[in-house]
């Protein structure tokens, strides 16, 4: 396998006396979907918040594109091209799709907003993701379905030539058809060359879309394996016991 775009080595993070991440290693590859699985409280959210710069780990290294980097805040992560799509999406219902995608980073000419540039860029990004379900990119987000809202949130994350996109439970609130649509979009992101990290509880989704699976157990990385080398049962065992003894492709 090619060298990873983003590597985390021996990450440790505590909240007071609680040791949440214990020597966690994690790799994400360009053009691949890496699923991050684990039971509630295993440390998935803490890990991605460390990647996104919201938490700063006590010890450990980040290696991005082969260089050691420090991520001290969300701005550092954004500057590297790491974007996160939260589970609650963080969209403004009363704004249209274009304004949501550019919120906080508007294109301006002088002091006025450059609406036509923003609209063209938003359109290009959505086209690049093969999104055809949105009628008009000037409609308010309030009028969109759950899947479409997820699409807008994802499109916002890739608008800035980002290299790593982290999706937190992208299908948790969606129906069958919309889940399908979002998973297709996730695949499309990876095919466009991004490193995609997906947190999910749904192993069917994981097996449908992921290339690699990273399973966490009680604050440790139980194993990071290629999807093709494991079965769903293996992953369930990793999640529930943290034991990777039975898995051939596992690198502890």
């Amino acid at each position: 396998m090619a060298s990873p775009l983003l590597s985390l080595r021996k990450i440790n993070k505590s909240f007071g006396p609680v040791h949440v991440l214990k020597n966690v290693d994690f790799d994400a590859y360009a053009g691949k979907v890496t699923a991050l699985v684990g039971d509630n409280g295993a440390g998935k959210s803490t890990l991605i918040k460390c990647i996104a710069g919201i938490y700063t780990p006590e010890t450990g290294e980040f290696i991005f594109e082969g260089n050691k980097v420090t991520i001290a805040g969300p701005r550092d992560a954004t500057a590297l091209g790491i974007e996160i799509v939260y589970q609650d999406l963080a969209l403004c219902d009363n704004l249209d799709i274009v304004h949501n995608m550019f919120l906080g980073r508007e294109e301006k000419s002088g002091i006025t907003l450059n609406e036509s540039t923003m609209e063209s860029m938003a359109k290009k990004t959505l086209d690049g993701l093969s999104v055809r379900t949105v009628k008009s990119i000037r409609q308010k987000v309030a009028s969109l379905s759950g899947g479409q809202r997820q699409t807008v949130a994802i499109a916002r994350a890739v608008l800035w030539n980002s290299k790593v996109v982290i999706l937190d439970e992208p299908t948790a609130a969606l129906g069958v058809a919309q889940t399908e649509q979002v998973l297709k979009l996730v695949r499309q992101l990876a095919d466009n060359g991004l490193a995609v990290i997906v947190i999910s509880h749904n192993l069917n989704d994981v097996f449908q879309v992921a290339d690699n699976i990273a399973a966490m157990y009680l604050g440790t990385m139980a194993a990071q394996v290629e999807k093709n080398s494991v079965t769903q049962n293996d992953v369930v065992r990793l999640i529930t016991t943290g034991s990777s003894d039975a898995i051939a492709g596992a690198k502890k």
Partner: peptide, 17 residues
């Protein structure tokens, strides 16, 4: 635009910087 954004979803506006 930021006024509308804060009125629509203050948390989203905050996360957008």
């Amino acid at each position: 635009l930021h006024i509308y954004a804060v009125g629509g979803n203050a948390e989203a506006a905050r996360r957008a910087g």
